[in-house]
Design a protein around this nucleic acid. Structure first.
Lengths: 365, 365
DNA sequence: TTGTATGCGTTATCAG
DNA sequence: CTGATAACGCATACAA
C-alpha cells in the first residue's frame, strides 16, 4: 500500500498552488487556517486554483508535524481489533466516544495494543496513528503500552483499568455493584453460590480460580468485583474460600457456558451464580437449561453490564452507563484541566433470572 | 488538547538519543528501521538509552512525512460517527475490516464524512487522520468526499456505493437479491405489495416514494433493490406504479415502524411487505402486531441484510456477507493491483415471517 | 495584507 | 557499518 506520487503525477502542495496563483505559500496557508487574514476575493481565487489543480488541503502529516497535533484521538485496548466489534459493552463505550468525537469533529483511531504485545524484544510503537491523546480502555495494568503511552507526553484518560497516578480515570464502583448483586441473591435466601469470573491476569489461563490466583489479580475491576461478591457472602457467614469460582479467559458466551458446566457439576450444586458479565451469564444460562435445570427455580443467575441481550434473556444484572463512559472519557481528554476522576453510577436491574432457592436441598442426583 | 512539550520537559527525539549514545541520528534511526545494519551490541545500547531517556520510538507524524505512509487506513462513511456503532450491518463490515487490519498490523481510523458536508463553502479536509488509503463505505455519490478522496492520490476502495471509474468495488448484486425476495413472496401467492425503501437521495425527505423520486435515485444500491422488487412484480403482472412505497430517511426500527403505519392503513392493505433492511422490517413488524394483525397470517414481511436480530425476530431476509465485505475491501486496498471488482454472493433466508396471503380478501374494516 | 526564514522529527541517499 | 546532507509539506514568528 504505497502512497503519494504513485498515480503518476507528483503530489500537489501548498507551494504549487501559491506559484499558480502568484502569491507566497504562506498566503495560501493562511487561506485555509486564517480566513480573516485575506481578502475574500483572493481567498476565492486561491480555492479555485486549488480545486482545479487537485489540491485537497494541507497534508495531515505535515500539518501535524508543524503544529504538534493531529485532530484525532486514539482508543486503545488490550484485545485484538475484531474483539472490539463483537463485544456489545465495548461497542457502547465506543458509541459514546464516537458521539463526542463527532461533536468535536475529531477522528477516531482504533488501536489494538495486542499487536504491540507480541514482539516483546523490539521497542514497538503504540500504534502507527498520530493522535493527540489516548483513551486507554480496560488495558492490562502490566501491559507495555501503558508505560509507552505515559512516556509519550500526550493527554491520557483511562477507562475502567488500570488506575494510574496523575491520569484521569473513568469507571464505576465495581466493588459496590458486585456487593449489591450478591446481597440481592442472599436476601432471596440463597446460601450456595458459584462465581464466574473474567480473567484475572494477563495469561491464557482458564479453569478454577485458585486461592493463589485470587490473591494476585492484576485487573483491578475484576479484583473489585470479586471482593464485592465475597464481602457480601462473608457478611452472611459464607466463607470466601468455600465459594467455587471459575476463571474465564475471554468474555464470550461459549466460555460462560463452559464455566457453568464446572459449577453445576460440583458435588454441591450452587443455587445461585454470580457472573462478571452478561455474555458469560447468558452462556451459562444455556448450559443450565441444557442440563435440564430451570431458571430461576433450580438456579438463579446474576450478570453484569446490562447489554441489550440481557433484557431479551430476562437476566438480572448491573447496568453500567457504558456510553457515558465514552463521552466522559473524551471530555476529560479534551479538558485535561481538573484531571479529576469520574465514577459513574450503576443500577441494579432485577429480572426473571433470579428467585428463591429451591426448597428441597438439591443434593444432586 | 495541546500536545508535545506540555508535561514540562521537551519531547525527546532521535537526535537526543543519538547525542546521548554518541552516534549520529541516522544510526539511531537505523536501529529501529533496519536492525541488520547495526551490531547487536550497539543496538542494545541505543535501545537502553532510549528507554532511559523516555524515547518511545519515531514520531508517527514525522515518520509519515518522511516515508509517505502512515500504517493506518481510513474507513469513511456518510453518516455521523455514532451511527456506525448502532447499525449491526455496518458493525459487521467493520468487524471484517478490523480482522484484516489486525493481521496487517495497521490501525483503523473511522472517519465520518458527515462533518465535511456541513460547511460546504470551505474546503474541508477529508478527516484529519493521515491514512494510506480509504475505504468508502456506502457514501452518497454526490458527496464531496468522494471527489476529495479521489484527488488525494491514495488507494481507494468503495464498498456498496457509489461505483467509481477505476476504483475497486466490493458489493453484492442488489438487484438480483431483491428480485428473489419479491419472487419468493409472489410464489406464495401474494398479489398486493408494499415497499419500505431506504433513502434515495441526499436530503432529509421521508414519506411516500413518489414517481419523481423513483426516477431520481442517487443511491445505486437502493435503485437496484427497487428495480429488483418491481421487475419481479411486473413479471407477475403487477404494475410498478401501483405498488405503494414509503421512503425512510434513516435505517432504524422507529422509521420502519412509521413506514409500516402508512402501508397497513392504505385502503387496500398489502398482504406482503418488502423492506430494504432488517431493522426497518423489524420496526414494521412491531407496528403490524400492534395493529392486531398477525405475521404471516395477515401480512408477510421480507427484510434485507440478515443481521443477528433477524433470526430472533424470525424474519425472512437476504443474507449479505457483511464481514466479508470488510475483509475484501482491505484486501483490495492493500493489493491494489488487479483493481478488479468483487461481487459477493447473497443468500435468501426463509423464516417464519412469510406465508401464504390470507384467503378472505381483507378489504379492511 | 503579504512574503521570508526557520523549525518540526524522521527517513533516504550516498558518501566514507 | 557509520555519518553528513537533503528532502518531506507545512505553520509560524517576524519583517516588509
Amino acid at each position: 500500500m504505497k502512497t503519494t506520487r504513485q498515480h503518476g503525477r507528483r503530489k500537489v502542495t501548498l507551494k504549487d498552488v501559491a506559484a499558480q496563483v502568484g502569491v507566497s505559500h504562506t498566503t495560501v496557508s493562511n487561506a485555509y487556517i486564517r480566513p480573516g487574514q485575506l481578502s475574500a476575493a483572493l481567498r476565492e481565487k486561491i480555492f479555485a486554483a486549488a480545486q482545479e489543480m487537485g489540491y485537497t488541503g494541507p497534508d495531515p502529516a505535515a500539518k501535524q508535524l508543524a503544529t504538534g497535533h493531529s485532530g484525532a484521538l486514539g482508543f486503545l485496548f488490550s484485545e485484538d481489533l475484531p474483539y472490539a466489534f463483537s463485544d456489545p459493552a465495548v461497542l457502547t463505550v465506543l458509541n459514546g466516544v464516537a458521539k463526542s468525537c463527532n461533536e468535536l469533529e475529531t477522528d477516531l483511531a482504533l488501536i489494538s495494543a495486542g499487536s504491540s504485545l507480541r514482539n516483546m524484544n523490539t521497542p514497538v510503537s503504540l500504534g502507527n496513528a498520530a493522535v493527540d491523546g489516548y483513551i486507554l480502555y480496560s488495558v492490562a495494568p502490566d501491559s507495555r503500552c501503558v508505560m509507552m503511552a505515559q512516556q509519550r507526553n500526550v493527554p491520557l484518560v483511562v477507562v475502567d483499568q488500570p488506575r494510574l497516578d496523575g491520569v484521569p480515570y473513568v469507571g464505576i464502583d465495581d466493588r459496590d455493584a458486585a456487593y449489591k448483586a450478591a446481597k440481592t441473591l442472599l436476601e432471596l435466601g440463597h446460601r450456595s453460590f458459584g462465581i464466574l469470573s473474567l480473567k484475572t491476569a494477563h495469561d491464557d489461563y482458564f479453569g478454577i480460580l485458585t486461592a493463589k490466583r485470587r490473591a494476585n489479580i492484576a485487573h483491578s475491576t475484576i479484583a473489585m468485583r470479586l471482593e464485592g461478591y465475597l464481602t457480601a457472602l462473608q457478611e452472611a457467614g459464607i466463607a470466601p474460600e468455600t465459594v467455587p469460582a471459575w476463571e474465564i479467559p475471554i468474555n464470550s458466551e461459549e466460555a460462560g457456558a463452559e464455566g457453568a458446566r464446572f459449577l453445576i457439576n460440583r458435588p454441591e450444586r450452587p443455587t445461585a451464580i454470580l457472573a462478571m458479565s452478561d455474555r458469560v451469564a447468558i452462556g451459562a444460562m444455556k448450559t443450565i437449561r441444557a442440563a435440564g435445570l430451570s431458571i430461576p427455580q433450580d438456579v438463579s443467575i446474576f450478570g453484569f453490564d446490562d447489554i441489550p441481550a440481557a433484557a431479551t434473556a430476562d437476566l438480572s444484572t448491573i447496568r453500567q452507563p457504558h456510553e457515558q463512559k465514552g463521552t466522559e472519557a473524551v471530555r476529560l481528554l479534551v479538558q485535561q484541566d481538573g484531571r479529576q476522576n469520574v465514577i459513574l453510577k450503576t443500577e441494579l436491574v432485577k429480572r426473571g433470572s433470579i428467585g428463591q432457592p429451591p426448597k428441597a436441598e438439591p443434593s444432586r442426583g
